[in-house]
Design a protein around this nucleic acid. Structure first.
Lengths: 231, 231
DNA sequence: TCGTCACTGTCATTTTGATGTCATCTAGGT
DNA sequence: ACCTAGATGACATCAAAATGACAGTGACGA
C-alpha cells in the first residue's frame, strides 16, 4: 500500500518507516502537515498515519484539509495516552482509527493490514480486466492458460493500470506514485519500467497490453484485451 | 505442532517444554502474557497452553486478546484444583479445554494430540497438492512412483508450503515459524534449508517444486505441479 | 570408546535478479 | 523535414538468493 506517515520526531518516524517498508508498503514519511499536504495533492495514498501532536497544524486541521481535498483514504491517528478528548475529536473530524503512543509496531502493522482491506482499492485477491488477471498475493499475471511472475515495481505499475483500466495515467503521476517521495528517478526509469513490463508480458501472447498515449502517458490497451468494460 | 506455552514458574515451565519438545513439537515457552502476545502477533501457533494464574493479565484477559487478534488455535488452560468458577469463565472466554495442576505430563501430551487433530491444519495422514503427496507420519514425499524421506526441518518447511499452496511465505515468517523463539538462526540457514530441500526433491524428477519470489519469499511452484487449483 | 554419518548452522563467495543511468535510435506529430 | 516523446540497448550498481566449504552435534554401530 501507499502510506503517508506524518510524524515530527525523527527518532520515532524512522523506525516506523522502516518497519512499514519491510512489511511491503511504500512509505512517504514527512515531519509536518504542510509537507504532507503538498504530497497528498500530487499523489494518492491508501492510508495516512498521523501523529496527533504536530507542530503547526493540529491533527484535526490536517484531517479537515485532507477531507476537503476530496481524499477518501483512511486516517490513523497516533495519540498520547491521556488525550481521550482529542481522540474523540479526531474521530469526529474524519479520522478512522487511533493508536496510543508509544506505538506498538506489530499492532500498527495489524491495523494497517486491517484498514488496507477496507480501502476502496482492495478488491480481493485478484484484479481482473477481460481475460487478464493479476494475482495480488503472488505478483503473478495470468492470461488464458499462461502466467508470468512480475518484479515488485512491474507489479505495482500493472496494479495501477488495472485498477482503472480506462484511465490514461500521466508520466508524472506514475513517477510520483510508483516511487517514494525523495527517491524519484532522475532519468527515464519509467520508460524502462514500462519496457520491461511489456517484455515480461509479451510471452503471454497478446501483443500490446500496455498502450502508449503519446504526449499524455500510458493506459491499459482496450483492444489488446477481450474486455467489454474497456469500451 | 507449533505450541505456545505460557507459564510463569520456571520449575514447571521447563519440564513441560522439554517433554513437549521430545514429543516432536516446536515449543515457544514464555513466562508472561505480554511476551506471549508479542509472539502470537508475529507467528502462528497450533495450540496455546496457558497457566491460568499469571502475573499481570489473567488467563481470561489473555484469551480475549488472543481471540481479538483473530487467532483461532485452541487454548488449553492449566488451573488449580479449586477454581471451578475460573475454569468455567475461561471456557466462556474462548478456551477449549483445561487440565488441573499439578500437570500429569502424559495426560497433557494426550490432550495435545487430541486437540491437534481437531486443529484446522490437520488433514489426516497426508497432505496432497496435485501429484505431490506428503506423508505426515513418515516424513516422506511421494511424487508419481517415487518417494523421498525428509529431515525434520525440511519436512516442516514442506508442510507449511503445502498447507497453503498458493501463498507466498515471507522469509521472516518462515524463520519465525520454523525455529523456536530465541533460537532463530543468525545466518542464511533458511536459504540453506530451501537449498537442501530442493536437492532432496530433485531426484523426484519434477524440476522446481519450490519457487523463489524474489524479495518476498518462497512458495510452492504452481506450474511445477499438476494442480488444478493453481490455474 | 571410537569412528562414521546424517543433520544443521555459519561463513565466504558466486550467481542471479531488479532497477537506475547514459546514450542512441525511432516514430508521431506538426 | 524537424522536433520531441518515447523505445531500446549497453551497462553499472545494489541487494537477494544460491552455493560451496566446513564445523559442531548427536545418534548409532563396531
Amino acid at each position: 500500500m501507499r502510506l503517508l506517515l506524518v510524524e515530527d520526531d525523527p527518532t520515532q518516524r524512522l523506525p516506523l518507516q522502516i518497519a512499514l517498508r519491510q512489511a511491503g508498503h511504500m512509505v512517504d514519511a514527512v515531519p509536518d502537515a504542510e509537507t504532507a499536504e503538498g504530497l497528498w495533492l500530487s499523489k494518492d495514498y491508501d492510508l495516512l498515519i498521523v501523529d496527533w501532536m504536530l507542530p503547526g497544524w493540529s491533527g484535526i486541521e490536517l484531517c479537515r484539509r485532507y477531507r476537503q481535498a476530496g481524499k477518501g483514504a483512511p486516517i490513523l491517528m497516533l495519540t498520547a495516552k491521556d488525550t481521550t478528548a482529542d481522540t474523540v475529536a479526531g474521530l469526529d473530524a474524519g479520522a478512522d482509527d487511533y493508536l496510543i503512543k508509544p506505538v506498538d509496531v506489530l499492532e500498527l502493522l495489524a491495523r494497517v493490514r486491517a484498514l488496507g482491506r477496507r480501502s476502496p482499492h482492495w478488491l480481493g485477491d485478484c484484479l481482473t480486466v477481460g481475460d487478464l488477471r493479476l494475482d495480488l498475493m503472488t505478483l503473478t499475471v495470468h492470461y488464458r492458460d499462461q502466467q508470468v511472475m512480475l518484479a515488485w515495481q512491474e507489479f505495482r505499475l500493472m496494479e495501477m493500470l488495472m485498477r482503472q483500466p480506462q484511465r490514461v495515467f500521466g508520466r508524472e503521476y506514475l513517477e510520483a506514485n510508483l516511487w517514494e517521495w525523495g527517491s524519484e528517478p532522475e532519468s527515464n526509469a519509467l520508460s524502462r519500467l514500462v519496457y520491461r513490463l511489456r517484455q515480461r508480458l509479451s510471452p503471454l501472447g497478446c501483443g500490446e497490453f500496455i498502450a502508449t498515449v503519446h504526449g499524455l502517458g500510458y493506459r491499459l490497451n482496450p483492444s489488446g484485451l477481450t474486455d467489454a468494460s474497456a469500451g
